[in-house]
Each structure stands twice: as structure tokens, then as C-alpha cells.
Amino acid sequence: MSRSEQFMIENPFERVGATDHANDPIVRPTISFWSDVRRRLIANRVAMFGLICIILILILAIIVPELSSYSYMDQNLSNTNAAPSRDHFFGTDSLGRDLWVRVWVGARVSLAVGIFGSIIPSVIGIVIGGISGYFGGFIDTIIMRAVDIIICIPSMIYVILIMLVFGSGPIPLIIAFALTGWMGAARDVRGLILQLKEREFVLASKLLGASHLSLIFKHLVPNTLGIVVVGMTMSVPGAIFQEAYLSFIGLGISPPIPSWGQLANLGTAVFRIYPYQLLIPALLISITMLSFNLFGDGLRDALDPKLRS
């Protein structure tokens, strides 16, 4: 921008007198792409419902463990498997631990894994896809062949193997997702950049001397963000599901730190007698996945006018 401004000032053919602006004032506020998206998203009640649920769950996950008088590890063997009551909103488990606190500490773990487990692979995908699409040729061929091959390997097997190597816990889980989940985003971004790089605005900034890096990450990648953000939102429930799945079979998050999948796993052991111990984490997993799915659908509709009726 600064270069073009300088250029304008030095322009000997500068126009003096009345400008176009004065003759034809813009009365309405301009609506940028993103404010249009926001407007459409807010108008979509189902998506807003999803967003509100997500925010509510996030707030509870942040404040409940801080305010509660119990901790997620406190055992009370004289009060085990208690039904939900005023002291223990969600009852207690087989070791007398307060489930209300455990569920919301578990929410922190599950949501962190879900959100970072989809943001980090997407960012890796953007960088690799961006470089591949922009430079094309040899680099592109190599990267895309590698993606073709890696994408064929069933990711769950690799997540399990990586978990075994790094141990079980939230961070190894996120690392495993990062290593196995970037290929989809890389493909999407590359495809979009291949189309975009022929456009005039890219030529214009090339003429103004933009470097490769600023072309890729300032001009091309921001234009692909829409699709990437939708993909990211849609992969959050997937990551939450994978965490729950792994913890359920005993490989994801190891005790004493709770996560929703692990709570559900503990719940299945006793759910024939105390069904609420499974019901509560199960409902939370489902509601969270549902909310992210609804919000992601709405976001996709808002970003892509072609899909709307």
C-alpha cells in the first residue's frame, strides 16, 4: 500500500479540483466480506444455538473447577456412588469423587484436545498447502505425492501408535492429531491457491515487488481462510470424538486427569446400577459435538452463498 501511495503523490498527472468522491458520496456503510458473513451467521438461529451452547460449556469448564469446594481428585470413601443432590450436582463416582467438578475438569481436557487438535493440524496444512500451491512444479509434485500416500494410511492406527510412543495425556494426543490430520487442509488450500494465483490482485502485488512469503501468507492464504475455518470447525467434533474414543478404550487420557471419554468409560462399568454416571458425560460429549456440527454448518452456509437456496 505504502508504495502505491508514494507513487500517487509523485504522479505528475495528479487530478486537481473536484474528486469522484465528492460527486458521488457513498451513503450506506460499506459491508466487507467478513461483516456480511457475520450478519448471515447471526441470522441463522440454529448456528447461533450451537454457538451459545459452545460458549456456555466453555464458561462452565473455566469457572466451575475454580469455584467448587471439591477437587477432581478428592476421594470420599464414605460417600460413594451417591445420586445427584444439592451437595453433589452430578452425584459421586465409585471412589466418592464429585462428578460435577470432574465433568468440568474433563471438559477442559476434552475441549482443549478438540480445539487445539483441529487448529494445529489446520495451520500445518495451510503452510504446506500454501507453499505447494504457490510454487507449483517440482515442490508441488513431491508434496502432493507425499500427501497422496500419507492420506491413505488410516490415521487412527497412527494416533494409537504415536500415543504409545509419547505416553498418554492431552499433549501427546494433540501432537498425534497434528501429525496425522494436516493433509486434508493442505489439499484444500493448495487447490484454492492454484486458482487464486492467476488472479489480477496477485499480479498487482507482484508488480509492486511483494516477496514470495508475503504473497503467500498476506494475499493468498487469507483468501482461503473461509474454507479452512469451516474445515477446522467441522473437525473439532471429530477430534473430541477421537479423544473420547481413545480414552474409552483406555489409551487416550490416563487417570487421575479426567476427560469426557474416560468418564464415560468409568461410567459404563457401573451404568447398569448408576446410569447417571454414564449419562452425564455421554450427553455432554453429544451436545458438544452437536453444537460444533450445527455451528460449522451455519458457518459454511454463511461463507458460501452458492450453497444457500
Binding site: 467434533p237 454414564l278 452437536l290
Partner: peptide, 12 residues
């Protein structure tokens, strides 16, 4: 809803 309910929960 079907996408949002993991099979292990539905099974239980």
C-alpha cells in the same frame, strides 16, 4: 444427531 452420538455411547 446421528453424527454427534459416538457409537460407544449409543451402544451403552
Amino acid at each position: 444427531i446421528g453424527v454427534s452420538i459416538p457409537s460407544f455411547i449409543l451402544g451403552s
